[in-house]
Amino acid sequence: MSVRGVAEEVPGAYKDVRAVVDAAQNAGLAHKVARMEPRICIKG
């Protein structure tokens, strides 16, 4: 794995998905209909 690949996996590299969804809903761009949770992650 490259240094760039490791940097992409740092938790701080991602936005809080709840904040993004809330912002989209508050802006009228989306409506919450379900909450999903990952069960498995396969990287290749």
Rank of each mutant, 00 (worst) to 15 (best):
P11N: 03
I42D: 11
V10L: 14
D16Q: 01
M1T: 10
E8R: 13
D16G: 00
Q25P: 01
K43L: 05
C41F: 06
A19N: 04
G28R: 10
E8Q: 09
G12H: 09
G12W: 04
K15I: 02
A19P: 00
V20G: 06
G44E: 15
I42N: 13
V10M: 10
A23G: 06
K15Q: 05
G28K: 08
M1S: 11
A27G: 10
H31D: 12
K32R: 14
R18H: 08
E9C: 06
P38G: 01
I40M: 07
R4V: 06
D16I: 02
I42R: 14
N26W: 07
I42A: 13
V17T: 12
K15T: 03
A7P: 00
V33C: 02
A34Q: 15
A7F: 12
A30H: 15
A24S: 01
A13I: 01
A23Q: 08
R4K: 10
P38K: 07
E8F: 11
C41Q: 04
I40F: 08
C41R: 09
A34P: 01
V10P: 00
V17M: 13
M36R: 08
L29E: 08
G12M: 08
A34K: 13
V6M: 04
G28E: 04
R35K: 11
A24F: 03
G44F: 13
A30E: 13
P11W: 00
A19V: 10
A23R: 11
D22S: 05
V20K: 12
Y14W: 14
A23E: 11
V3E: 06
K15R: 10
G28P: 04
A27H: 11
K32Q: 14
C41M: 04
I42F: 14
G44W: 07
A19Y: 04
V17P: 14
E37Y: 13
A19M: 09
K32D: 15
C41P: 00
G44T: 15
E37F: 12
R39A: 01
V6F: 08
M36V: 12
A27V: 12
R18D: 09
C41T: 09
Q25H: 03
V33T: 12
S2G: 07
I40V: 09
A30N: 13
Y14V: 05
L29K: 12
D16R: 02
V17C: 12
V3C: 00
K15P: 02
R39F: 02
H31I: 11
M1L: 09
D22Y: 02
Q25V: 15
A27K: 15
L29F: 13
Q25G: 04
I42M: 11
P11T: 03
V21D: 00
R4W: 09
V21R: 00
A34N: 13
R18S: 05
I42K: 14
P11F: 11
R35H: 13
A24C: 03
C41E: 03
S2V: 03
V33L: 10
D22L: 06
E37C: 05
G44K: 15
A27L: 15
L29V: 05
K32V: 15
G12I: 03
P38M: 03
G5N: 15
Y14C: 04
A34D: 15
V17I: 15
P11D: 00
V33M: 08
R18F: 10
R4F: 09
V33I: 14
K32T: 13
R39D: 00
G5C: 12
A27P: 01
A13W: 10
